[in-house]
Design a protein around this nucleic acid. Sequence first.
DNA 1: CCCATTTCATAGTGCGCGTTATGGAAGTCT
DNA 2: AGACTTCCATAACGCGCACTATGAAATGGG
Lengths: 221, 221
Amino acid sequence: MDTPPRRTGRPLSFDRNAALQQAMLTFWHHGYETTSVAELTAAMGISAPSLYAAFGDKKQLFLQAVRLYAGDPADVERAIAGAPTSFHAARALMTGAATTYTGEATPKGCLLASATASGSAAAADVQDAVAALRRGIEACLRVRIERDIQEGVLPPGSQAAPLAGLVLAVTQGMSVLAREGASRASLLAVVEAALRAWPGSKAEDARRGDGTAANAAEHSA
Amino acid sequence: MDTPPRRTGRPLSFDRNAALQQAMLTFWHHGYETTSVAELTAAMGISAPSLYAAFGDKKQLFLQAVRLYAGDPADVERAIAGAPTSFHAARALMTGAATTYTGEATPKGCLLASATASGSAAAADVQDAVAALRRGIEACLRVRIERDIQEGVLPPGSQAAPLAGLVLAVTQGMSVLAREGASRASLLAVVEAALRAWPGSKAEDARRGDGTAANAAEHSA
DNA sequence: CCCATTTCATAGTGCGCGTTATGGAAGTCT
DNA sequence: AGACTTCCATAACGCGCACTATGAAATGGG
């Protein structure tokens, strides 16, 4: 699909997926505009013409790296829709983010947050693509919260949009804290603090700690 | 102090403060590394040699713009220390941020969050300077929360560090939402949702809405 | 074995970057 | 007025950027 049958000619001398993985890590570390093609070719272990032949240009390479980073959006949406409650979905999203942002073998923070926080007008379409991913998660979570309200899981009068926005804001904000060196434990504590804002979740579930459906938000390798 | 007495010679043909203001807005809009000196000189209405004579180089200009943006750190710390409670301080910080991030006459989001989320190794000291500002606010807020715990304003067992981290995370995360076009009202709703996480603040103060000591966090022009 | 096809390595393209050298214009001081 | 100091405008510096032209090397098909 991506690679129509290559019938003849010299075979590729590098692992395309491994190279894309290295590109993803490089973008994750430095951001989109502040990563140079020279840095990419060095990390990927290939030359510039090979990069352009295999991935298009820098922008298309970044978009493919984003897809590798974020995984299939349908997976995240299924995880949100299939969680026992929106509370569990929110906890899974945020703990997954906190865990991903503080991985030992990966850069700190969030590739999406780091890559597009700043940006010149030339990279507007890149920002749009990343923003679409975020909006998708936010919309899916908001729908899940609304369902809980209608089904009586959450008290009536609970506001779905601000809660979904809170989860997204905490998620993106934790990227900044992680980048400054915050530990995984401290971020997970921030997540638990944020979850106290969930309607009907004050002292009664303060020390529940089940973690159902955790780690469905973002990949971890 | 900044400008030792200039006794003779041709006077400056531009308003130094106005030029710095324009530089700040340009950095605010595009970030640090993704703003070129050509963009800066165009926005400031001066030529490159004038910029270098008046402000040093791009890095020093950015740091001066950050000081103009953030104001005197002592003001923020006084506002936090002088707030009636840490809850009021947190609300003031977050509502101030939400308001600043959605100003009509200013770029969307936070200059500090936008400028340093991405960054090559060459700009590490710039990131450190911005991170120091954030850490200062976080530490000051954490101390304020600890005071409330000791004085019995917050229930014992309340955890200061995660609460301070939550406020910082929400603040930085709102910058991302604002940059994607979130309205001021929606961000203020996120702030109110986040404040429900404050210990001892569930339904009893849901519709208080005093806003004491609001708007002390960040400047607004 | 030769050809068609694809990839590889080297080298280089034009361009925009941050920064500065130069010479003249606009002031103040005596 | 003239010396001196400071600033402005033009033009250019070297460098790194994203990207590519060129030709040789490595494969499969006939």
